[in-house]
Design a protein around this nucleic acid. Structure first.
Lengths: 246, 246
DNA sequence: AGCTTGGTTTTTGCATACGAAAGTCTGTAT
DNA sequence: ATACAGACTTTCGTATGCAAAAACCAAGCT
């Protein structure tokens, strides 16, 4: 037993029969009728990984996860498979699942890819945005700026994510949007320990970007987004080097 | 029983106990010791989908797949999960797996994304390529051109794929490379019914691209790759419209 | 005729069972 | 003390079993 009595999630009791209860908090929230258990397990595990409750490199023993989540091994296995294809865990044959260990190199590669995709999404967004869309963008921008003034980091991060996500959706390319979402979640996880947020500059850049989208200037929007994400990337690098030298 | 006696794969007998045999052809080929069965099932099913032995929209009944592959339902389920996350099948809760039905819109979106990623990979390739790499590129180019002269469509397609894959790897960004590979496989599947290959032009463009990479001119390489993939996309569009109007 | 409704069949989703591989520990010989 | 051999333990991978949801089908009602 790797972790005999330490509950991995808050749920507590987690005897086998308590399954409908133990996961309901995470599962029954969203769906009406058919809530496949594996989906709930997937979300729960992803959350534990993103939270770093489950640490990079940690060996995930199926039976332990199953018991702590109050389900059998099967849904856990299926969730782990999915987590593997998305890069959250590594599945070593006959050895099981290990939380993926982020390397600096991989983090940088992911960040590059995200930048490229976001740049493209900005270009498409400029081509497709309606005046109503622009209004919404401006609302998100205002929210971000006011959060910044209030020094509410949580809100700034949320507004930033919302703004980028909205542009992504404006692109009208759902394949692209999903890809960005996936990559973005990983990037955030990789860089989370740095606890980095950019300040006023970022939101000035956002404003220019929104203006370009409003004008429908795809070329400019792409250029600005490219520059913006590239600066974010530089900021990460500097931050990482600073925290490593400590 | 949806398809009681029609073997889905060539394997033939496929009684339950024949498992180690029936899949060995596909499984034991690559790995030495630990060859998880689900991996073989995944590859087999993907092959059946790409082949169109399993048709878009078709309901995939787990037990049927399992029996025809000579394994139990469990590895099949796990393979289907993975196929879902990669977009090959749709998993409807409590209803099972259906082969994903490609739409023109989605195909175009995938193609766009692939183009963006490949353009970026060309840029990186130009930055990283060594003289030896360039030599290899030229070999692949020669192979393609000679295949073209011989009018050997199979070889042309293979050479084209190899050339693009090599550039992709030259980028040095493995995350990017894997993404391109995934997207590319889907794109090929979507457009396979069109049975389209571009001719001499494509290989002229390749030659220019290789020259740019050889010079280390990243900007030019990116531009050329962008143009090249965009032409491929146009070719697909024209071809599709032509075949639809028939 | 079309629509509902009840029962039957099919198929999924999850749980459990079992064999085998990998890892760990102990005892012995050097 | 250290290295090796072999038994023991843990954990995975796959198979099988079972309950419940969904699909199907047919009879009855409007």
């Amino acid at each position: 037993m790797s972790q005999p009595d330490v509950p991995l999630i808050g749920a507590g009791t987690a005897t086998r029969r308590a399954k409908r209860e133990s996961l309901s908090s995470a599962a029954a929230r969203k769906v009406e009728r058919p809530a496949p258990l594996r989906q709930a397990v997937y979300e729960a595990l992803l959350d534990l990984i993103v939270n770093r409750t489950l640490k990079p490199g940690q060996h995930l023993v199926e039976i332990d996860l199953a018991e702590h989540l109050g389900v059998s091994r099967q849904p856990v296995r299926e969730a782990l498979q999915r987590l593997q294809t998305e890069g959250w865990v590594d599945l070593r044959p006959a050895q099981g699942a290990f939380v993926h260990t982020p390397t600096d190199e991989e983090a940088d590669q992911l960040l590059s890819v995200r930048n490229v995709l976001e740049t493209y999404s900005a270009r498409l967004a400029a081509e497709h945005a309606t005046p109503e869309d622009v209004e919404q963008l401006e609302e998100l921008q205002n929210e971000g700026v006011s959060a910044l003034k209030a020094k509410d980091v949580e809100r700034v991060v949320a507004a930033n994510a919302a703004l980028h996500a909205f542009i992504t959706r404006l692109s009208g390319n759902t394949v692209l949007a999903e890809m960005i979402a996936t990559v973005d979640r990983r990037v955030r996880w990789y860089y989370a320990p740095l606890a980095l947020t950019r300040g006023k500059d970022a939101w000035t850049e956002h404003a220019d970007l929104i203006a370009a989208i409003a004008k429908g200037d795809a070329e400019l929007a792409a250029t600005l987004m490219g520059r913006h994400t590239e600066r974010t990337r530089s900021a990460y690098h500097e931050h990482r080097e600073a925290s490593q030298s400590k």
